[in-house]
Design a protein around this nucleic acid. Structure first.
Lengths: 163, 163
DNA sequence: GAGAGAAACTTGAGGGAGCAACGAGAGTAG
DNA sequence: CTACTCTCGTTGCTCCCTCAAGTTTCTCTC
């Protein structure tokens, strides 16, 4: 039945391509994130952010990174990073290291257990990611999706003020 | 630009297009969401989900929806919806309505204040959304981004089992 | 070399949301 | 009518993360 033209009240707040994309982003993130997060937690006791942080640390020089840089990479606030690392530390997956050149900074450094759990989680998680995406997109679509998405992040979340 | 064959270090955990897309989704969502959420909260005291729920309610028949259906539309769990509606009710933007045909269901119904705040928030929020996306994407890109993203959500978050 | 301001990080308070467990109504079968 | 099962919804517990404020250290200018 043609319930296609029910909308006539609002003048210009109609569906727009921008809005569609935005809603799509919200829903896609919600759906995919919940699925992966659950798998990761049940399988390894890690959240997605835990996982990503470990990934960044491992690929960083010396297996360590300043908290600020970590925050920027995973788009969390400074305090978010502090608490996330608290957890990882308590589990023994990262440790603190101080910086000789700057006493303000505390490096987060991945430990051997950290590498181990990352290695064990990596397989299933990446496989799940690949399966989900590969199942829905062609190689070309994947590339354009990726390109488009990477254009979105704005300035860092911190209070970057003008002038 | 033939940077097509750069991968040779790790056997198979390398950057893959799927992973790139996934990371892009995570970052894009984090960045954009934080920005919009903040604007919406500062400007109107609503979260993104509040806003979306009101939007769905307004466009629903009779301005009301069962909680289950709401949950499905915004991809929250049942309990998430309950608490979200608690807040909106306390603010007077929605109210409960019972269903004569089925005593289990409680409709969430948008109120006049609800419509009012939605109307007032809508302008700036949608403008912000449009600006952000329009600034970064062409019309064609927007359409493909939207199409691709809408392909992602999986089955509903509940325990849909095969069989 | 002192003081102003910025940067790195932590802490306290609060909010949003998920999971699991539960109560209550509805539907189906005997 | 009774029993079994399913669905709708709420509640307790817990986690994750943000904001605002505070501490310490660095840097830059005078």
């Amino acid at each position: 039945m043609g319930t296609l033209s029910r909308i006539e009240e609002a003048p210009e707040l109609e569906r727009s391509a921008e809005l569609d994309a935005w809603v799509g982003l919200l829903r896609a993130h919600a759906a995919v994130t919940r699925q992966f997060n659950r798998e990761l937690i049940e399988g390894h006791g890690l959240t997605i952010n835990d996982f990503e942080v470990l990934l960044h640390l491992r690929s960083a020089d010396g297996g360590r990174l300043r908290r600020v840089d970590l925050a920027e990479r995973v788009l969390l606030t400074a305090s978010g990073i502090t608490r996330l690392l608290d957890g990882l530390e308590k589990s023994g997956f990262v440790c603190k290291a101080s910086c000789s050149a700057d006493a303000r900074v505390t490096y987060a450094e991945i430990t051997d257990p950290g590498r181990a759990i990352l290695a064990s989680a990596e397989g299933s998680h990446l496989a799940a990611v690949r399966a989900l995406f590969a199942e829905r997109f062609s190689a070309q679509e994947l590339e354009s999706l990726s390109t488009l998405l990477h254009r979105l992040p704005l300035a860092p979340p911190s209070d970057a003020c003008p002038g």
